[in-house]
Every structure is written in structure tokens, then in C-alpha cells.
């Protein structure tokens, strides 16, 4: 290995502040008579870490599911990379450059860390099943290239020691990390993280925070995350959207949001006269 190659990798990519990457306009989402999201609008700028916070049942996960294309809102529009998004299936959206992790880990338990992360490359594999069955030739070359990309992620997330272990046997914090790895493997423009630190201890939270910052810094990936831990949100994010009962009640820099009386009420449950 050449040290020059490492330097070149270091100088490419990286975080830049940019224009709007994603914009949601007047989103309303209903499940039967329940209005999960009411007329929500906000934007995510290229290169930023955008947090979506709010108490339980505020509609955070619903919002993320709208962005990821899993839910189709009854009203409103999603604009991604300057284009209005037509209704699409989730895998089509994934091909557009969007990847996510889940609140309840959704990995293939019996498969190894390596294989799980490899599934993240699926949208980028070009050879059809016939070629893959033949194995030799183009499919092999392609797999080697993908394996290298996956190994870079394994190195980045410092999970070399569990490369070949089935993920079902791993502790929770590591599973979360593998899931992040799988999302990263898709080389997304926008990474959606649904409660990346839920259920973690302080040390695991610190590690995960470090990785989120590093992803943003090294790869220039735009990140939207849902999180409960206010300390984490305030430290990590550039801007914060606050939801409560499906309404947007705050939007701005962490310090601004924290000072917003409506947000304080929503979090601390102050009685309204």
C-alpha cells in the first residue's frame, strides 16, 4: 500500500456546505382518521446534519418514512436533488441515493457482518443472475470491487473483528453499527438514521456520535436523524426540526430550538391554560 493513495483518498470528498438537497412541502399524512403529519414543510441542505426531534408519537418516524418513500402522503410534495418526486417504490428511491437505518434493527441475523454490509451494495450491482451464477469473469471483478468498498466501510467503522461473525450473535451497539455500515455501503447522498442511539450506553453513544460526525465529515454525506437524547442532538446537528402531535413547532439551530418555549412545553409537559 502506498501512502500517497491514502492522501489522495483523504483529499477527495469531504464536507461542503451546499444548496438544498431535499425539501418537503406541506406534507399531510393520514392513517384512516388519524392525522400523523399535518402540513409539514422543511428542507435539508447538502452536507448538513439535520435532526428531527419530538416526544413519543410526534410523527418523527412517519416523517422519515415519507422521505424514504415508504409512506405516500395524501397531500404535499417531496423534492429531492431539485426534482419533484413522483410516487416510487422504495428500491427505486434507494437507487436515487437515499439510504436508511431502522429504529428496530433490521439486519439478516444469520448472515455475517460482511454479507450484511454487502447487501447494501445491491443497488449498484450490474451483472444479472446468470453472470453471477457463472461467477468467473465480469461478475468476479465486480464482486472484488464491491468487496473493497465494503472493506473500507468495515475499516471506517472499526468492526474488523466481527467481519465474519453472524450479526445475530453481536451485542446491540455493534448491530447498530453494522446497520449503519449497510446504509453507507449504498453510498447515499442522503442518509436517514432512525434513532441511531436508542438503547445504547454512554460509551456506545459516544462511539456512534463520532461515527456520524466522521461520515458527514469524510464522505460529505448529508444526514437526517431522529433522536431522543437531547444532548446528542444538540451536539451533533447543524439544524433541528421539532415535531409535536404531527405539527412542526420549531425549526432552526440547536440553541434557538432549545430556547423556544413551545418546544420546552412539548418536552417537559407544562400544563396549558
Amino acid at each position: 500500500m502506498n501512502m500517497d493513495a491514502q492522501l489522495a483518498a483523504h483529499l477527495s470528498g469531504g464536507r461542503q456546505a451546499g444548496g438544498t438537497l431535499l425539501e418537503v412541502k406541506n406534507i399531510t399524512l393520514r392513517f384512516g382518521g388519524v392525522e400523523a403529519l399535518k402540513n409539514i414543510s422543511f428542507d435539508i441542505r447538502e452536507g448538513e446534519i439535520r435532526a428531527i426531534i419530538g416526544p413519543n408519537g410526534a410523527g418523527k418516524s412517519s416523517m422519515l418514512n415519507v422521505i424514504s418513500g415508504f409512506y405516500h402522503p395524501q397531500e404535499g410534495e417531496v423534492w429531492f436533488r431539485g426534482e419533484k418526486r413522483r410516487p416510487m417504490r422504495p428500491h427505486q428511491i434507494a437507487r436515487q441515493g437515499l439510504a436508511r437505518t431502522f429504529q428496530n434493527i433490521a439486519l439478516f441475523k444469520g448472515m455475517s457482518t460482511l454479507d450484511n454490509i454487502m447487501t447494501g451494495r445491491l443497488t449498484m450491482m450490474r451483472r444479472n443472475m446468470l453472470w453471477q451464477a457463472l461467477w468467473k469473469g465480469p461478475a468476479e471483478a465486480e464482486e472484488i470491487a464491491h468487496r473493497e468498498a465494503v472493506e473500507r466501510i468495515i475499516d471506517f467503522l472499526e468492526i474488523q473483528h466481527i467481519r465474519k461473525k453472524p450479526v445475530g450473535a453481536l451485542p446491540y451497539g455493534l448491530q447498530k453499527r453494522v446497520e449503519l455500515g449497510r446504509a453507507l455501503a449504498a453510498e447515499p447522498k442522503l442518509l436517514l438514521l432512525d434513532e441511531p442511539m436508542a438503547g445504547m450506553n454512554v460509551e456506545e453513544k459516544e462511539d456512534m456520535s463520532r461515527f456520524i460526525l466522521d461520515v458527514n465529515d469524510e464522505f460529505g454525506t448529508t444526514i437526517a436523524l431522529i433522536e431522543h437524547d437531547m444532548g446528542v442532538v444538540m451536539d451533533l446537528s447543524d439544524r433541528v426540526v421539532v415535531l409535536d402531535y404531527g405539527r412542526k413547532i420549531g425549526d432552526g439551530a440547536p440553541a434557538e430550538v432549545r430556547a423556544n418555549p413551545e418546544v420546552i412545553d412539548a418536552y417537559l409537559g407544562v400544563a396549558h391554560e
Partner: peptide
């Protein structure tokens, strides 16, 4: 040696090993 996470540091007294070799 490893430049990860150091991009935005003040490089007044910092140098990458690969840069020194170059």
C-alpha cells in the same frame, strides 16, 4: 499516519506522513 477526521484541523503544526514522504 491516518488522516481520518483530521481534515478540518489547523495544519499549522500537523503534517501527514504521506505528505512528508512526497
Amino acid at each position: 499516519l491516518d488522516p481520518r477526521g483530521l481534515r478540518r484541523y489547523d495544519h499549522g503544526r500537523l503534517t501527514a506522513l504521506s505528505e512528508a514522504q512526497a
